[in-house]
Amino acid sequence: MLEGNRVSRISVRGFAVASATAVTAVGSVVGVASGSVAQPHNDAEATAADTTLLADIPVGEQAQVQTASLTQQADAQAIAADTSAKKDAEAAARKAAAETAIAKKEAAEKAAKLEKERIEAKAAASRDDVRDASSFPTQSSYTVAQIQAMARQIVGGGQFQCFSNIVNHESSWNYHAVNASTGAYGLGQALPGTKMASAGADWQTNPATQIKWTLSYMNGRYGSPCQAWTYWQANSWY
């Protein structure tokens, strides 16, 4: 009876070793399939059983062992994927925040620039060296060069180029230019042309008067000729 008990204990132990060895063997097979390298170990009993006892385990138990191993791998892969997704999301958030900060900075700089131009335009308009229309002798006709020279003195160097850009598009510096469709008249194409009478009764024939009125219009409506030019580029009119 004692001997029988001893045999039973050995048998149970053998089954336990076989089961553990089967797990090891299946893990090794799965590891090789996934490209990993199995680590050597010193358990002689398990090593000897790796190739001999796996077949002794019922098929149902082998499937369970394989399923458990695959589940562990799937869990590990899911954790790795989740970690990667979180890192990607954090990187995207940082990038979006940086882009927003840059956009705000650029908008602030643009607003500051426009405000500076507006202040400079007002200062230029009030400077003593800016001449009005009456400062220029009246002529029967004027060349484009003469008209542009007047504009440089009336408008001021800081805003002249923007002023010139608009006049180039509106009338090509022709102070007698008339829009056949709307009736707009003069260098800045005032609509109607009679608006320029506020700058001088000679608005039809004196380009200096037209320049003075056009500059006043740009400053009053947009803040400066350069701001008027910015609007013109976006809309093809001002």
Score class of each variant (00 low, 15 high):
residue 225 P to W: 00
residue 112 A to S: 02
residue 181 S to E: 12
residue 149 A to Q: 12
residue 128 D to F: 11
residue 181 S to I: 10
residue 157 G to N: 07
residue 120 E to V: 13
residue 179 N to M: 00
residue 83 T to D: 04
residue 39 Q to W: 08
residue 84 S to K: 10
residue 159 Q to F: 01
residue 217 Y to T: 12
residue 40 P to F: 09
residue 205 T to N: 12
residue 213 W to Y: 07
residue 117 E to W: 08
residue 192 P to R: 02
residue 156 G to N: 01
residue 80 A to N: 06
residue 33 A to D: 15
residue 65 V to F: 11
residue 29 V to R: 14
residue 25 A to C: 10
residue 41 H to Y: 12
residue 122 K to G: 15
residue 230 T to R: 12
residue 74 A to W: 05
residue 193 G to N: 04
residue 72 Q to A: 13
residue 155 V to Y: 02
residue 140 S to N: 09
residue 174 N to Y: 00
residue 49 A to H: 03
residue 13 R to T: 03
residue 39 Q to K: 15
residue 6 R to N: 11
residue 85 A to T: 05
residue 23 V to E: 13
residue 19 S to L: 14
residue 147 I to K: 03
residue 56 D to F: 13
residue 207 P to K: 04
residue 193 G to S: 03
residue 37 V to S: 11
residue 144 V to A: 09
residue 61 E to Y: 08
residue 8 S to R: 15
residue 104 K to A: 08
residue 200 G to N: 06
residue 92 A to S: 02
residue 65 V to P: 08
residue 207 P to N: 02
residue 100 T to A: 15
residue 166 I to R: 00
residue 221 R to S: 09
residue 203 W to E: 07
residue 111 A to G: 03
residue 67 T to S: 10
residue 21 T to C: 13
residue 163 F to K: 01
residue 22 A to L: 05
residue 42 N to T: 00
residue 177 A to F: 01
residue 15 F to V: 11
residue 80 A to Q: 07
residue 221 R to L: 11
residue 233 Q to D: 04
residue 50 D to P: 06
residue 1 M to S: 14
residue 169 H to G: 04
residue 85 A to K: 07
residue 78 A to E: 08
residue 166 I to H: 01
residue 29 V to I: 13
residue 187 L to M: 02
residue 91 A to E: 01
residue 144 V to R: 13
residue 79 I to M: 05
residue 149 A to S: 13
residue 96 A to M: 05
residue 215 L to A: 10
residue 21 T to Q: 09
residue 23 V to A: 14
residue 101 A to M: 06
residue 55 A to E: 14
residue 68 A to L: 03
residue 142 Y to N: 02
residue 108 A to Q: 10
residue 126 S to W: 09
residue 192 P to Q: 01
residue 181 S to K: 13
residue 91 A to M: 00
residue 207 P to R: 01
residue 2 L to Q: 12
residue 87 K to V: 08
residue 228 A to S: 04
residue 22 A to K: 03
residue 167 V to Q: 01
residue 210 Q to E: 01
residue 178 V to T: 05
residue 223 G to V: 00
residue 205 T to V: 12
residue 113 K to F: 05
residue 87 K to H: 05
residue 74 A to C: 03
residue 219 N to G: 10
residue 229 W to V: 06
residue 69 S to H: 07
residue 57 I to W: 07
residue 2 L to M: 09
residue 121 A to W: 04
residue 27 G to D: 08
residue 140 S to W: 06
residue 32 V to Y: 08
residue 24 T to M: 12
residue 101 A to E: 11
residue 6 R to S: 08
residue 161 Q to P: 02
residue 176 H to S: 04
residue 71 T to S: 09
residue 194 T to C: 06
residue 99 E to S: 04
residue 90 E to Q: 10
residue 34 S to K: 13
residue 203 W to T: 04
residue 188 G to N: 13
residue 194 T to N: 11
residue 28 S to L: 12
residue 127 R to A: 12
residue 237 W to N: 12
residue 109 E to L: 05
residue 210 Q to W: 00
residue 38 A to T: 12
